[in-house]
Write a protein that binds this DNA or RNA. Structure first.
Lengths: 239, 239
DNA sequence: CGCTGTGTTGAGGAAGATCAAGCGCCGTGG
DNA sequence: CCACGGCGCTTGATCTTCCTCAACACAGCG
C-alpha cells in the first residue's frame, strides 16, 4: 500500500510522505527536494503561525513535531492536531491566508516553502490527498475526545501516530521515537498528565505498549487497532 | 456585519446565508434560487451520504437539520457537526468524491444540487467562506470536547447554533427553533442524555436559557459568550 | 549547585456514567 | 373512541472515571 517512489529516499521523511500519497514525477520530486534544501529551523515553543494573523505562505514540515493549539482565556490548552514531517501548513485555497489556529513547535522544527501545486499534477494530487487525510484525522480526533475512555484515547492516538510515521518512513515495526511529554499527550486528549501517566502504566502492565527512553513500541498494532475498530486512514481515503 | 443582499429574501435561509458570506451578484442569486426550486426532500434518519461511499455531487441544504456522524463498532455514536440550511456538503475540491463521514437527516431535510462555483466569482467566494467556517467550527468542537465541562459545552454549542442560525435568518433576538433532542445533544457533546438533561435544568435555573416547546432562547448571548471567551466566527474568519 | 521540567505516587473529591423507573405526549390500530 | 406502544423528558440511587492538590525522585543544564 505504501509505495516508495524512486525519488523518495528513506532519509527524507517529508519527501517520502508526499511520494507515498501520490507517485511523484521527476519535476515534483526535484522541486520538493530543492525546497527542502532551503529549510529554516525553529526552536521548541516557537510559533509557526498565530491564529487570526496572516500566513506567510504554504509550508512543508521537514523535520520535528508541531501542534495546532487553542488556548482558552483561563489557560486551558487543547491540541487540535499534531504536525509531523511531510505535513503541510497554510495550504488554504482561500483568498484569505488567515491562520485558523496557532501552531507551535514541540521540538526543534525545520520547515520549507511548499512548492506550488502547479509544478506537477502529481504534486497537486499529493497535496489533495494530504488535505483529505488531515480532515480525516480531525474527525477521528473528535470521536476520540467525544466517545472514548482515557485508555482508548491513548491507544487510538498512538495508532494514528504510528500510521502517519510509517507513511513518512519514521516508524517501522510498530516502533517510533516519541518526543511528546505526557502533558502534551494530555493536552491533545483532553486529560490531565497525571491521568495519562496512570493509564500509560496500565497499558504497559497489560503489555500493549513499551515506552522507554523516548521510544514507543506498540506491541501488536493490528490487534490493538482491531480492538478499537480502527481502520487505516489511507485505505478509506483512497478506496 | 450580516448584510442581506437584494436577492436574499428572508424567506429562503440557504440563499440568505450564501448572500451573507459574500455579496452575491444577480447571476449567483438566480442560480442558487433556481437550484433551490429543484430541491428534493428526505425523511428523518435518511442518509445523505455514507462514509467511504462515492458522493453524487455537491449539494446545498435548503431546509431541515442534518448531522455528520461516526458510529463505533459497539454502537457509541458521535456527531461531528450539524448541518443547517445554507450549509454545503460534498464540496471536496479533491479528485475523489468520497464521503469522509456519514451524514444523517435529523429532521425532514430538503437539499438541492449546489450551483457550480464558476457561475460567479462571488458564489465561489461564498463557497470558500463556507468551507473556512466549516473548518473553524470543527476546531471549536474539538476544544469543546477536549477542554470544556458539560455546562460550558452546552452553552458554547447553543451559541454556535445561534450564530449560524442568525446568519441564515432562522434566528433572531437570541431565539430559534430547536429540533434536536437531548440525546442528539449528548451525541454531539460527548455526554449522556441524562446528564444533558440535568445540566439544562441547571442552566434554566440560573436564567441563562429558556427552552420550551422546541423553542430555545439564550437570554443574554453576549454575556454568555463573554463568559466563555467566545468570539463570533465570521469576524475571525474575515478579519 | 540549585533550577526547571518530566515522570511518578498518594489521598480525596467532583463530574459524569450507569441503571432503573415513571411520566406525558402523540400517532396508530383495534 | 380508547388502549397501546414508542419516544422524549425527568428523577433517583449508585458507581466509575477522571480531576485536583500535593509531594517527591530524577535528569539535564546553566
Amino acid at each position: 500500500m505504501i509505495r516508495l517512489a524512486t525519488y523518495a529516499p528513506r532519509e527524507q521523511p517529508a519527501l517520502t510522505r508526499l511520494a507515498a500519497l501520490a507517485p511523484l514525477d521527476a519535476e515534483a520530486s526535484v522541486a520538493v527536494a530543492t525546497a527542502i534544501d532551503h529549510a529554516a529551523t525553529m526552536r521548541p515553543r516557537a510559533e509557526l503561525a498565530v491564529e487570526g494573523r496572516r500566513i506567510a505562505g504554504p509550508r512543508l514540515i521537514v523535520s520535528g513535531w508541531a501542534a495546532r493549539t487553542k488556548i482558552m482565556p483561563d489557560g486551558r490548552r487543547q491540541f487540535l492536531s499534531f504536525l509531523l514531517p511531510g505535513d503541510l501548513i497554510g495550504m488554504c485555497r482561500q483568498p484569505r491566508p488567515i491562520a485558523t489556529s496557532t501552531i507551535v513547535a514541540l521540538t526543534p522544527v525545520a520547515t520549507c516553502a511548499a512548492p506550488p501545486a502547479d509544478v506537477s499534477p502529481w504534486l497537486a494530487e499529493a497535496y489533495a490527498m494530504s488535505a483529505a487525510l488531515e480532515e480525516a484525522y480531525l474527525l477521528a480526533h473528535i470521536v476520540r475526545l467525544g466517545r472514548m475512555h482515557a485508555q482508548e484515547r491513548i491507544a487510538d492516538l498512538l495508532l494514528e501516530l504510528l500510521e502517519r510515521l510509517t507513511l513518512n518512513g519514521m516508524a517501522s515495526g510498530g516502533q517510533f521515537e516519541m518526543p511528546l511529554t505526557q502533558e502534551m499527550l494530555g493536552d491533545a486528549l483532553g486529560l490531565t498528565s497525571v491521568h495519562i501517566n496512570r493509564m500509560l502504566q496500565a497499558a504497559r502492565r497489560e503489555g500493549d505498549i513499551v515506552w522507554r527512553e523516548r521510544q514507543v513500541e506498540l506491541v501488536d498494532p493490528e490487534k490493538l487497532a482491531e480492538r478499537m475498530g480502527r481502520r487505516p486512514m489511507l485505505v478509506s481515503a483512497a478506496a
